[in-house]
Design a protein around this nucleic acid. Structure first.
Lengths: 143, 143
DNA sequence: ATTAATTCGGATAAATTAATCTTATTAAAC
DNA sequence: GTTTAATAAGATTAATTTATCCGAATTAAT
């Protein structure tokens, strides 16, 4: 099965969109995020922890603690989330898996695929979370 | 780690490019393909078997047998290989993993990502193996 | 202080994907 | 016909990804 983002990355994006759709400076526990987004609680906890390490999300321990966005949604690019969770290897390593593939010694599909990959990278780099918050609100209410 | 194609799919594409770069109607054994492309022999055998089932590759059993392209390289699109090995779900299911995502009820990144995905699909659909054979010859000689 | 609810970190388990092994079948060459 | 070299198919193992579990630390409320 081909895939573009790992499950972790999908969940991370969902969780961030969720937090962005809520009021600032409130704490949302892994439990309620998991429940609302229908993601396994333990798994989303781990992912949120990673995002905390990357300073994208903040957390508060103890009773009534939880998670919140550590940055303004207009400062969080989609690519930042991909980088934090999956890394940026997809954008640099050969699609065909040829270890010898490079600009100077490209694999057969290098240039064609490279264009597309640049487009993806540019899209993910230009789009920030705030572009999506309104849509997110609508979507979450359906879940 | 995000990824675009599975390893299987990468190997399948490599093997097909390999066969396309060779003379027609000669048989190439899994052993020599594996050796030349530096892919585990047993694994590439399995993958070639799948491609045989999809009529993209043909095979001949017994001594001096092996694999060959069952179709003209200009009739084999990249998307055919992806479809045979990984399926086309990447192009239809939600990038965010929202099960409720659809045209009528799109997920927040639906339209932005959708454009990109269409581009990918179009690219893979329009490019056929023969476009790459010359480049492949160069590349294989380096391995 | 005690309790309850939370994050955090490490360990473990389950599921999926990747890779290997084994045996059967096929067909050419001797 | 026997041997040899190949694909085919099923079973098994290994590695990776996904998911869960548990115990410790933290903090608010009682």
């Amino acid at each position: 099965m081909s895939v573009i983002f790992s499950k972790k990355c999908e969940y991370a994006l969902q969780a961030i969109l969720y937090l962005a759709s809520k009021d600032e400076k409130e704490y949302f526990s892994a439990r309620e995020i998991a429940k609302d987004l229908k993601i396994p609680k333990e798994f989303i906890s781990k992912i949120l922890q990673s995002l905390v390490n990357f300073k994208i999300v903040g957390s508060k321990k103890g009773k009534n603690g939880g998670f919140y966005l550590a940055k303004n949604p207009n400062k969080i690019r989609l690519i930042d989330i991909v980088e934090a969770i999956d890394g940026l290897d997809v954008f640099t390593t050969c699609v065909l898996g040829f270890p010898e593939c490079s600009y100077d010694s490209p694999c057969p599909v290098h240039s064609e695929w490279g264009k597309l990959r640049s487009l993806a990278y540019d899209m993910l780099s230009s789009q920030t979370i705030d572009h999506f918050t309104e849509k997110t609100l609508k979507k979450i209410n359906q879940l």
